[in-house]
Structures are given as C-alpha cells and as structure tokens.
Write a protein that binds this DNA or RNA. Structure first.
Lengths: 341, 341
DNA sequence: TTGAAAGCGGTACCAC
DNA sequence: GTGGTACCGCTTTCAA
C-alpha cells in the first residue's frame, strides 16, 4: 500500500502527540486510560488512513508474547496431519493466533533444534506429535510455562496435556470384526516403532487375537524404508512364507498403500482371498477398487480439542491441571472386508 | 536444560567482559575483529556450557532480517503443495533459513492479511501461489525489496520472478495422445478459474482439439464446490447429456478423484468405455484400478528452482533481473489410456 | 488525560 | 583487541 514502513513514532510526530497515547489507543486501552474521544478518533482515523500496523517483532520482544502457536508434526505432507493443520489454523485465526507448521521427520535432534528456535522467537504455545527422546525437552517447556499439548501419541513419563484416540480399543474391535467375518489368520502390519500409538494399536490386535485363541502374526517394517517397494516385497515374502493368511490389518494408511501395491503385483483377490483393514481412514480408501475398510480418526474433534486445550492454557491463569483427552474412532466398513460365515 | 532464559548480558556479567565482544564472537566476526584466541575459547565454552541462544526477535528487530521465508500456497493439505513444502524446507534449512507455511484458501483478503502480518515480522522472502487480486500486494512487496517468487501460476501484469510448468504444451500433448489413441470426443474437466495455470491447460487442450478438427467439450466446475459429490453428480449429468464421450481429461488431480468417484457410480468401464487422463500426477493414480495416466509435474525441480531463485534474490545485491522459469512435465502412461486404433 | 522514559535483547558504530 | 552506547519499535510504569 504505502511506500516505507511507518512506525508509531512517525504517527506521534505527525499528530503532535506522544507514542504512549497512540499505543494505548491501538491496544484498546483507551477507555481504561480515559483518553478523550476526540483523541481516539483522530488517532484511529490516521492509523486507518496510512494503514499503520504495529511491528510484531517489537511488540513481542517487549511483551514476551507473540500470538503464535507452533504445530510440530512428524510430516506435514501426511494427509492426517495436514488436514488437522488446516482445521487448527482456521480456529487459531479466529482467536487471533497464527500457526507455524514444521515437520520433525521423527528426528529428535531436528525436533529439539526446532523447539529451541521457536522458543527464541517467543512463540506462545506448542502442539506436538512427540518423537522418541523428546521427553526432556517437553519437560523443560512445561517448566518454563509454555503452553504445550501433545497429540497422536504421548509420553507416559511426562505429565503433559494431550489429545489421542482410542488406539487400543479400536484395533481390538477392528480385529474382532475381522474374526467375526470368518478370518482366523490375521496379519498385523505395523512399523517397528516404540511410539505409544503404534504400541497401543499392536496391543489391541494382540488382545483380540488372544481372546479368540488365535495366533498373532505380526509383520514389523523397519522404520526407515528406503523405497516404498521395499516393504511391498517384504510383505509378499512374509505372506508367502506363512500358511494361508485370511486378512491383513495395517496400522497406518501409508503402510496400507504399500501393501495394496504389493497385493496388486501378487494378483491377490480382495476380499475373496484376503480381507483388508487399515487404521486411519483416507479418502482414497473409498476410491480404491475394492474400497478399503478403515478405522477413521475423528479429525475435527482432534483439531477442536487441541485448540481448546491450548487456548485454555494460553488464557488460563495458572491452570496447572493436565488435560488428557482420548477420542473415539469409527470403523468404516467397506468392500475389502465382508462376512464369509 | 537450564532454568531461566539467559541473555547476552548475563554472559557479559558472568565473564566480566562486554556484550560487544560476545556478540562478535557469536556472529563469527571474531577473526575479523581480531579477538584473542583465549577470549574466543572462553566465550564459546561458556556459551556451549549454558546452552545460550541469541533471541531471534531482538536480532531481527535490530538487523531487519529474520532468516525466514514464507511459503504461501492455496492449500497446504494438497499433496502437490505439501510435497513441495517438504523439499523446500529441507533446502532452506541447509541455507540457514526457516520456512513458515500458510494457506490462502484462494482468498485474496486472507492472502493480503497474511502478507501484511509477515511483513511486520520482518520475514525476508515470500514464495507464493498468487490468488487473483493479489497483484497490488505483490507489486508493493517488490517495491519494498522483499524477495518474492511466484509458482504454479503467475501474474502477467507484474514483473515478478516465477517458476511454472509448461501447462499449455503438456495439455496439448496430452490431448493429442488421447486423439492418437483413437478418441474423438474428449471432455476437458476444469475449474471455473481465471488463474493462469488453469487457463493455459485449457488452452492447450483447445488448440489440440482444434488442430485435429475436433469439437472442444469443456466442463467447468464452479470454484467453490460445497461437497465433493456435487461435482460428481454434475459430471454424470454432463456426460449423459452429451453424445458418447471417448475420454475425459482432468485439469487437476482432485478433479480426477471426484470424477473417478462418479465413474464408479456410473459403472463406466475404464479404459474400454472411457479413457481417463489427469494433469498433476499422484501416487494414488498408480494404485487405482485401472491405474490412471497423468501428466507429472517435476516436483523436485520446482522446489529446487524456487529455492535457487529466492536465495539468489536474498543474497544477490541489487540483482533486479526477473527470473522466469518454465519446467517440463512428463506424460506418464498407465492403464486408463490405451491405443484402440 | 497525556507524556517521558526505561526497558525487551540484541547489533553495529565509534572510541579507547 | 575490547568496551560504550545509541538504536530497532513497541509496551508499560510512573509523573505531571
């Protein structure tokens, strides 16, 4: 709009008043400070006319607040995270907060580095999917009174607010659903990961299998797969080397994509030869031929809980209570699973 | 780590030296300023010991630079954008820059608001997929010497660096490919949008059709579709109300997803009854049954060109030259298109 | 009701 | 080789 940056000083000089007065008016403290109506109007008009905007840096340097929340996830290009990101951004916006995204790539060093960086930028709060080894950093954050809320997974040893889903319960139910469909030999495909959400999913599967007196068949993909095909090949080997498998239950949707790719190569007939179920629904599952059954996480609710939680911490005065939220998932039944008995 | 924030002053006091010296050492100007080795070592050790990190806000308030680049796209949850985001983040990181993402949702007001906000945070550069109506804002940015680079689309009336792809050429070739496959009645499904990339794609299609003496059949989806099904139904109507259509060419992948969904409902046989081609490849196209042919944009090259361009502007002294880059796409032939003649 | 001035935590110019 | 100190632009006492 205008040419050069205009500061509060310029306005003061131009209007012949002090910067203090302007600051009060801009920050809505005019009434409180009993500034005259005339003065208020003069300043407001001028501010609007020149399109003045206070410099955020200076503001937050002085106030220690920045109205910025960091949204730190494992991988922002993962649709689960980017969808939540969008919802959060929207709500944050309404409350006058900005969101800064970043991806940790599950690398604790990178995560720590990012947290340090953002602390130095005076961000007010953090929404984090913690990587392993972030425990100390989170504790520090908490002790420094930053607003922090974890999601997707959490850290048992740290008393920190979090929003997660019923991983264990849903996987238990999902497994039981496959069993009810007549499957006996069910393979659970997961990542070799100690993250709580992965462990809980695995454990839900195992409990269900055990309860029904079935043998657990777990395929763990090493965390860093160089190529997507790699896992595809491995799972083919796994299936071939095991007695006929009735169903495969994937612990995340991207594992399912790799698996489906592999099944394509093997020319397996779904669901006739193999039933397929995946954790974490994805719109492609509805488009896939056949459509793939999945356990859908309540994206909107997660986003809402996160924002409520963090805003609560941000506004709340010394509300030390830790907020632990666990949301329910929904089993979406589609073509890849069906009752044979 | 430590308890309270430690500032350069604390270090000065503790070590009994001036903050100036410390500042020099921290900023690698020790040699230049001929600070003694002993002093350097003392300071560096102490800094490492207490884990001191300069406050970025203060730094950038003073220097006017922030080492931050804004990556402003239409929708960060769109995989095309989020994939580029990741690549860019990686490269930026190596050059000591941080990336801040945000989505405009194609809303010029929101975009302007965001740009204003970031200007006030002293960001150094902007990577933008411009919405319509952003012309003035971009011009201002340029005149204020911010580093700016547009991508995906551009603004003809503004002399601004940009990285785009050969939309017209690729769509011309894609259309011709369908024609060579024996298709005559080819529908081009696009958005009702004046954005350059959409216009160019449409125009490529039209030229090809015209050259081969075929009639252009264009279906334009109104920009804001309330539900994904909406367009699906509309395209079914469109196809039904037209003489037998041989092929559908989608201008973006999400349009293709909607379309494929509709074709599913119609029980159309692909490619026998209908050949399908889409602009902007997506990993799901390879998984779909049948796999979907697509025009793949060179993601890595785009990301690389963007970073090169912006870093060039950031480092370059008065390099007023505008950088216009147009990259080539690749036609990926899959099961949804095949030669019938 | 308004204004002066002291910071916030650095950087950079200029002395010593 | 080091140190003093005037800013950067704003918020926030405290005085007037």
């Amino acid at each position: 709009m205008t040419k050069k940056k205009i500061s509060i000083k310029d306005i003061a000089k131009e209007l012949g008043i002090s910067i203090t007065t302007i600051s009060f008016i801009i920050n809505g403290k005019a009434k409180e400070k009993r500034i005259s109506e005339t003065m208020i109007k003069t300043v407001e008009d001028y501010v609007a006319k020149v399109g003045y905007r206070p410099n955020y840096l200076a503001q937050s340097l002085r106030s220690g607040k920045s109205k910025v929340i960091v949204f730190m996830v494992e991988d922002i290009s993962n649709s689960f995270f980017s969808n939540i990101a969008r919802l959060i951004e929207e709500r944050a916006y309404k409350s006058g907060y900005k969101i800064i995204y970043c991806s940790t790539e599950n690398d604790a060093d990178k995560a720590i580095e990012l947290i340090q960086t953002f602390k130095n930028r005076n961000v007010d709060g953090f929404i984090i999917t913690p990587t392993l080894g972030l425990e100390g950093e989170i504790k520090t954050l908490l002790s420094e009174n930053f607003a922090v809320i974890l999601f997707d997974r959490w850290i048992p040893s740290v008393e920190c607010s979090h929003v997660i889903v019923e991983n264990e319960k849903s996987c238990y139910e999902g497994t039981e659903y496959l069993i009810q469909n007549g499957c006996k030999r069910i393979v659970f495909v997961t990542l070799e990961s100690e993250q709580t959400q992965m462990q809980d999913r695995l454990s839900g599967y195992k409990s269900a299998m055990k309860k029904h007196g079935l043998e657990s068949l777990v395929f763990e993909e090493p965390f860093h797969t160089s190529s997507p095909d790699f896992m595809g090949d491995q799972i083919i080997d796994f299936l071939k080397s095991h007695e006929k498998v009735d169903a495969v239950f994937f612990a995340t949707n991207y594992l399912a994509f790799e698996g489906l790719h592999a099944f394509r190569k093997m020319e397996v007939l779904i669901p006739e030869d193999l039933q397929v179920l995946s954790f974490d629904d994805h719109f492609f599952f509805g488009l896939h031929q056949p459509s793939i059954s999945a356990i859908a996480q309540p994206i909107e609710q997660i986003a809402e809980s996160l924002m409520n939680g963090i805003l609560h911490q941000l506004n709340g005065v010394e509300s030390t209570e830790v907020m632990k939220i666990e949301l329910s998932n929904k089993l979406v039944k589609r073509g890849s699973t069906f009752r044979t008995v």
